[in-house]
Write a protein that binds this DNA or RNA. Structure first.
Length: 275
DNA sequence: CGTTACCCCTGGAGGC
DNA sequence: TGCCTCCAGGGGTAAC
């Protein structure tokens, strides 16, 4: 579920329901996800108001009266995390690790693999939190471009695909969108990052932006349902050109889509269209 | 410094 | 039916 577009659409879905709402408590059922959930978080959150919800990379960032003595709640969904709004007193199920409780609704985090995170940053500044401090550029911001990408990869001898997934460089690009963007740009995922020229990086940056934006636009309705309590019904499937399609015809040239292993992850691509 | 190998954790799919 | 292996949209760390 969660790469940048899914997190962004979740954010947009939650905005309407939670902005301006007062937190009455939190429930921690599993203390350790990727990191330990801070002790006393329930007490710290109680009485604070959610003033805004933003996103940094794949983190959801809840502004809990940060400028007025509160702080920031950070939620990362890892590989298998999901958020739902459920009615108060809805029984928790297996893997429901954390609740943010409001008078009229509960934001519930479910995460079977527990690669997600619930973190807290006290005070007015969120960027100093260790989880955010080393993050790279937002791919949908003005700071991101082909020229920037080209300059930032001059000493990167790794294949371009794992470089795209390095969140110290660019955030939010996971295994799916790395593959899809490289396909759209006609660049092989095996190419060394430092051997790709400026023109191709300009194509790649445009491909990344359009892929992410299209996914945000397309994901809207389904992830909004996902955020609501009716999760499960009508699971939305993103239509991919190459990801997950090993052996199937490339949508452009009909050659079989290839799959290889890079840095422990599957990489899908068309060896005819991408070079 | 850049790069690799491995670890964290559960569940689903498919082979036998 | 069970047991086994492999795979999964993320990310951190130790070691070379």
């Amino acid at each position: 579920m969660p790469e940048l577009p899914e997190v962004e659409v979740s954010r947009q879905g939650l905005l309407t329901y939670l902005t301006g709402r007062r937190i009455v408590g939190a429930v921690v059922r599993t203390s350790k996800l990727r990191h330990e959930i801070p002790v006393g978080l329930d007490h710290r959150l109680s009485g604070l108001t959610v003033e805004a919800i933003s996103r940094r990379g794949k983190y959801l960032v809840f502004d809990c009266a940060a400028a007025r003595g509160g702080g920031w709640l950070l939620i990362h969904l890892g590989m298998s995390g999901s958020l739902r709004l459920v009615p108060p007193a809805t029984p928790a199920q297996k893997h429901d690790h954390f609740d943010l409780v409001f008078p009229e609704t509960v934001l519930r985090l479910r995460d079977p693999r527990r690669f997600g995170d619930v973190l807290w940053q006290d005070g007015p500044v969120v960027d100093c939190h260790p989880a955010l401090a080393t993050l790279g550029v937002e791919p949908l911001s003005d700071d991101f471009s082909g020229d920037w990408l080209h300059a930032a990869t001059r000493r990167r001898r790794m294949p371009v695909k794992p470089v795209l997934m390095d969140n110290r460089l660019v955030v939010g690009i996971g295994n799916i969108y790395a593959a899809e963007s490289l396909f759209l740009a006609g660049i092989s995922p095996l190419r060394r990052a430092d051997q790709i020229d400026l023109e191709h990086y300009r194509r790649l940056a445009l491909a990344i932006c359009s892929t992410l934006r299209a996914s945000i636009a397309a994901g809207g309705s389904s992830v909004r349902d996902y955020v609501h309590s009716d999760g499960g019904a009508g699971c939305y499937q993103l239509s991919c050109a190459v990801y997950g399609r090993a052996g199937q015809p490339c949508p452009s040239c009909a050659n079989a889509v290839q799959v290889v292993r890079q840095a422990g992850r599957s990489t899908f691509y068309c060896s005819n269209c991408q070079c």
